[in-house]
Design a protein around this nucleic acid. Structure first.
Length: 870
RNA sequence: GUGCGUGUAGCUCAGUGGGAGAGCACCACCUUGACACGGUGGGGGUCGUAGGUUCAAUCCCUACCACGCACACCA
């Protein structure tokens, strides 16, 4: 391959001029696309499908960039690598947007009708759904777009129905009246996993319940006085002596004058409040459990609008009031009756809907559930026997704990956008579950001798369909080649906040239906917060749009910036935009190093042609050795998901080793003969190592230099075995580096004048140091000279300068060296140390002491010669 | 309440049982065959506190303090 034409490149790297062009080139070339190939090891990552309504945010930076990095890395390794993208229909979020839009036009969901509503939802999904995928392209993410799936696709919907019917027939899906989490704002149930307990300031009211026989009264404490309308008992702890004599007696429920029994139940904490609690099984999870144990009635006093209703039990004058109005009214009436004993400020965790933010209302309702224990068992087993592991490991505990305490999953939602339950009812109320309406009719005819069926209006929890993701996107239940080759995937990458909602459910459903764990490894990426550790949110105004960052610094800089902030054990990133700016500077550095190479008079030879080993200089050998080590390190960091260290390793190599030292060394005449070949070789390899992290600039540079192939995307991952290593030469060069730094320091401290004429009388290797330090012969009465006797291993630098300048320097050195010598002597004088420490540690200590003593002797001699008493 | 994580330079964070590190910020100097989105040099930390193990602790153990997070039916 010939050297590309040497056209001058602009001085600053301009990502905007390059990134869109390269992305289009990749997509047009079909480089992201892959077909199953049983002959090669698979590397599959199912992309967590972003909400169809969503937009890219910084969280995608920390969770999706690693997926792109690993996919690109494994593609270069030659694996059958594919990153499978898609979109989630985001039932509640989408429905909420549409309902809001309709309301703005004065239309209700019901007046529009289900069919129309769903048509709108489809339109809306189609029109906005492209946004996030386009944004992902801007970020350089390269999933296999041709395989993109949507959770409402025909195929995926069929899988959903199949799974539902199968679970129902196995008895793992059932319908029942249970206490569920009602979201009054979203007008739907939500699962336990979608309920968030938020600390809020509230009030604890102490209320007096008079005894029915008038001989006593009992005081209870509650945060929800309005629910007392649904009270069915008072409960105390069985061993609470204060109330032992009252158990079995009756009290009168204030305001509505119902008599309630006093019961004993261990769920009551005697130390809290008064030790006596009101029991409202229809509106509180604890009370519901107590109600079940004691076979208490469970009246509902609230409807789906969270208004008080007297439909099931007498609620006095409160019927029709909103729950908060009712609370205020009840409190006021209690006060009027003298039954309110105390009001104290109280801070506690309130159950809140993650989606709508509204306070959850526990309600008794007839809903559909998945029986989780039988599904959880194998999923736990897989974790325990190591088939499934988490990185970092501690997240496995989270997974384990949840599965051990798992409760049944409420899957029916009262919204329209989503997978409608494949459930029909006969006029008599018989339940028919089938994959299609035809099948349902058939069942109804044969089993119930009727054909009039009404379909259940509810839809499934969004997470039900995403729980099938790793296999539904591969064509399940059809026996496809994809399923055969690409299931299970190799890794799943996501944030810890959806370990329960999504990860655990994929494991359970995958094991149950697809024949095994969906992925052996789950990498939990850190979540992104602002620099103060606060969650990024629109309302706080601290949210950073990744598109803005790309605009300012380029996609590569965004990726590098966020990857460098990822630490293996970290659970959060306190995002600093400055990291992206630094990364932009880094890219500019790469760009200019490339410009330097292209501007050299030497033609850059083919990238894989190195000079004969004997011809390589120590600078060449050093940078090649460092390249070798960098390839090994980055590969290992990728394999262990340590993206922060991987990026740092490349950064160090490119900037501090290649640019700061090697490029400078190529300006020294003794390195001229070999530099073009070594530069070409090293830079070609470095770009390939960089590519998974910074796909654009690595491609642009790689294409600009001698290379094989059409795109770096399909180039091979550098093989460290092809990079010559010479540790001895590398160590020698490092001595030169140390000497160079020493001289620079002296020059800076002594403020010696700069010049441009290199000294030519120094022996071979020292020339290099002289050149790197811009060393010049005597000027203004000062000279720095290298001790030529020490050429093999530079250890001392002779400085001649005006005594006044040197004196201070030597005094400082003497102080430092004396303390070092003292430290060493003390350590070696400690018999226990010499006797018990490892021999090599002792030997090293002796060597160090010796070195310091020699140096000190030199300095003291110099001081003495200047008339200083030492 | 239980569990987990974190506390190292002004900031964000690496790191190791044997002389404390990086980037940014700061100070000084420098336009040297690419880069001022640059180069060179420098100042700055009792490694949260108190004990313990060890010849040796920033690192291991214990307790405590501070912060963050998850789980939990304290109404």
């Amino acid at each position: 391959m010939t050297s590309p034409e040497k056209t001058p490149l602009p001085k600053n790297y301009d990502p905007k001029a390059i990134e869109p062009r390269l992305y289009a080139f990749w997509e047009r070339g079909g480089f992201f696309h892959e077909d199953p190939d049983p002959a090669r090891p698979p590397f599959i990552i199912p992309m967590p499908p972003p909400n169809v309504t969503g937009r890219a945010h910084l969280g995608h930076g920390s969770t999706y960039t690693p997926q792109d990095v690993l996919t690109r890395y494994h593609r270069m390794l030659g694996d059958n690598a594919d990153w499978l993208p898609g979109l989630d229909h985001a039932a509640i979020a989408t429905e909420a947007v549409l309902v809001r839009e309709l309301a703005a036009g004065g239309i209700s969901r019901e007046s529009l009708g289900r069919e129309q509503f769903i048509e709108r939802a489809w339109e809306w999904s189609r029109s906005t759904g492209g946004t996030i995928e386009q944004q992902f392209r801007t970020l350089g993410f390269g999933p296999d777009w041709q395989r993109s799936r949507f959770t409402m696709d025909d195929g995926l919907s069929a899988a959903v129905r199949k799974v539902f019917v199968a679970l129902y027939r196995e008895g793992l899906i059932y319908r029942g009246k249970r206490l569920i989490n009602w979201d009054p704002k979203g007008k739907t149930t939500v699962s336990d996993a979608e309920v968030e307990h938020v600390e809020r300031d509230a009030c604890l009211w102490h209320v007096r319940y008079p005894g029915a026989d008038g001989s006593f009264a009992i005081e209870i404490a509650t945060t929800r006085p309005e629910t007392m309308l649904g009270d069915v008992a008072i409960a105390v702890h069985p061993e609470d002596e204060r109330y032992a004599s009252l158990v079995g007696k009756m009290v009168v429920l204030p305001l509505v004058e119902r008599t309630l029994p006093i019961i004993a139940d261990a769920a009551v904490d005697p130390s809290f409040g008064t030790g006596a609690v009101k029991v409202t099984p229809g509106h509180d999870p604890t009370d519901y459990e107590i109600g079940l144990r004691h076979e208490l009635p469970m009246p509902s006093i609230m409807d789906l609008d969270a208004r008080i209703t007297g439909a099931e039990i007498d609620v006095g004058p409160y019927a029709g009031l909103d729950r908060y109005e009712a609370r205020a009214q009840v409190v006021e009436d209690l006060r009027t009756h003298g039954l309110l004993l105390k009001e104290e400020p109280y801070r506690h965790a309130v159950a809140t809907s993650e989606r709508s933010g509204d306070v959850i209302e526990p309600l008794l309702s007839l809903q559909w559930f998945v029986k989780m224990k039988p599904l959880a068992q194998p999923a736990l087993q897989a974790y325990h026997d190591g088939r499934l592991r988490f990185v970092p490991e501690r997240y496995g505990r989270t997974y384990e704990l949840w599965l051990e305490n798992i409760r049944d999953w409420n899957i029916s939602r009262q919204i329209w956008w989503g997978h409608q339950l494949p459930v029909w009812y006969t006029p008599a109320g018989d339940v028919v579950v089938a994959e299609t309406e035809e099948e349902a009719l058939e069942i109804a005819r044969t089993r119930y001798a009727g054909a009039a069926l009404t379909r259940d209006p509810d839809t499934l929890d969004t997470w039900f369909s995403s729980g099938l993701w790793p296999f539904s996107i591969l064509g399940w239940p059809e026996k496809t080649l994809e399923l055969e080759c690409w299931y299970p995937a190799q890794v799943l990458i996501t944030g810890w906040e959806i370990i329960f909602l999504w990860v655990a459910r994929m494991v359970m459903l995958g094991m149950h239906f697809a024949g095994g764990i969906p992925f052996p490894t789950v990498f939990i990426a850190p979540l992104v917060f602002d620099a103060q550790g606060r969650k990024m949110s629109k309302s706080l105004g601290n949210a950073i749009d990744p598109m803005d960052l790309v605009e300012r610094y380029g996609a590569d800089a965004f990726r590098i910036g966020i990857l460098r902030q990822m630490r293996l054990e970290g659970q959060e990133i306190r995002f600093q935009e400055s990291r992206c700016e630094e990364a932009r500077n880094f890219n500019n550095k790469i760009w200019n190093a490339t410009r330097y190479m292209l501007a050299l008079p030497d033609a850059l030879p083919h990238a894989m042609t190195l000079p004969k080993p004997a011809e390589l200089t120590i600078a060449d050998r050093w940078i090649l050795t460092r390249l070798h080590d960098t390839i090994v390190a980055v590969s290992q960091y990728f394999e262990s998901f340590d993206f922060g260290n991987a990026t740092d390793a490349i950064w160090r190599f490119v900037w501090y080793e290649f640019c700061d030292w090697y490029l400078e060394a190529t300006k020294v005449p003794q390195n001229h003969a070999t530099r073009a070949a070594v530069l070409s070789f090293v830079w070609n390899n470095a770009m390939r190592v960089l590519h998974p992290i910074a796909p654009f600039i690595s491609e642009e540079v790689w294409l600009a230099l001698p290379h094989d192939g059409v795109t770096i995307m399909t180039a091979t991952w550098p093989d460290h075995l092809e990079v010559p290593v010479d540790r001895e030469a590398a160590a020698a060069f490092e001595l030169h580096m140390a000497a160079t730094e020493q001289i620079r320091r002296l020059k800076a401290e002594l403020e010696l004048p700069l010049g441009s004429k290199p000294v030519t009388t120094l022996p071979g290797d020292l020339m290099q140091i002289a050149a790197l330090t811009q060393y010049t012969a005597a000027a203004a009465g000062a000279t720095i000279a290298l001790d030529p006797e020490l050429a093999g291993g530079v250890k001392a630098i002779v400085v001649e300068a005006p005594a006044s300048l040197l004196l201070e320097r030597y005094r400082k050195d003497a102080i430092r060296l004396r303390s070092e010598v003292e430290r060493g002597e003390r350590k070696l004088g400690n018999e226990a140390f010499v006797a018990k420490a490892a021999p090599d540690v002792v030997a090293k200590e002796k060597e160090k002491l010796e070195g310091y003593r020699n140096e000190l002797a030199r300095v003291e001699a110099a001081l003495a010669s200047m008339g200083e008493t030492v």
